[in-house]
Amino acid sequence: MSAREEILSRLRTATADIITQPGARGEVPVIGVASPGPEQTLELFAENVADYRASVTRCRPDEVGQAVAAALVRARAHVLLVPDGVDATWVEPLRDSGIRVVRDEGLTADQLDGIDAVVTASRVGIATTGTIVLDHADDQGRRALTLVPDQHVCVIRADQVVHDVPDAVAMLDPVRALTWISGPSATSDIELDRVEGVHGPRTLDVVIVS
């Protein structure tokens, strides 16, 4: 008997006493907090993102370029990676700044390691947890782009922010690769002392556009 057949048969024997059918529990319950209003949700989101020691900027749509440039200057970034689908106006002000803009032309991991920062859009934000979810569409790029460079500038529209975790799960397409980001990478492995910045981007800048 193959391992597959044997394991499945063991599991069938083990559950022989179960008389319900799969799915008998009914619909998955949605347990979360309802949004008290769009502005409160947005404020909570900004507060919780900042609580992870990510820096948060709120701006109007025509100010995104300035916000991105300011974040790059703060972190002293010289080389910025821009995925193809990113709104051109977000990097427009960088033209004469001395910050070099590069595109993803099949960059290797080693090449990505030489890049200081990346700017992306995002799919959904979660207020109660201060989380940003990327689904790696064209305006976010493949997963490695937002992982290897040391700074991630992430732009999110106010209408992409939902209140609680189940709202976000309902909006996501599981067929896509998904990355949930809550603050910069961190570890508490040494005496439970929190240290920000281990392997992922050590600087996370979130620009909320409304």
């Binding site: 998955v28 947890t129 189940p166 976000a168 990355t179």
Partner: peptide, 27 residues
């Protein structure tokens, strides 16, 4: 949809954070 429940239960129970810094999902 069960992740709507589990992604609330696990990080808070585990590291005592509202959400852990990174979660990867691949299909």
């Amino acid at each position: 949809a069960d992740l709507g429940t589990m992604m609330q239960l696990l990080p808070r129970s585990s590291t005592g954070e509202r959400m852990n810094p990174y979660t990867s999902m691949w299909t």
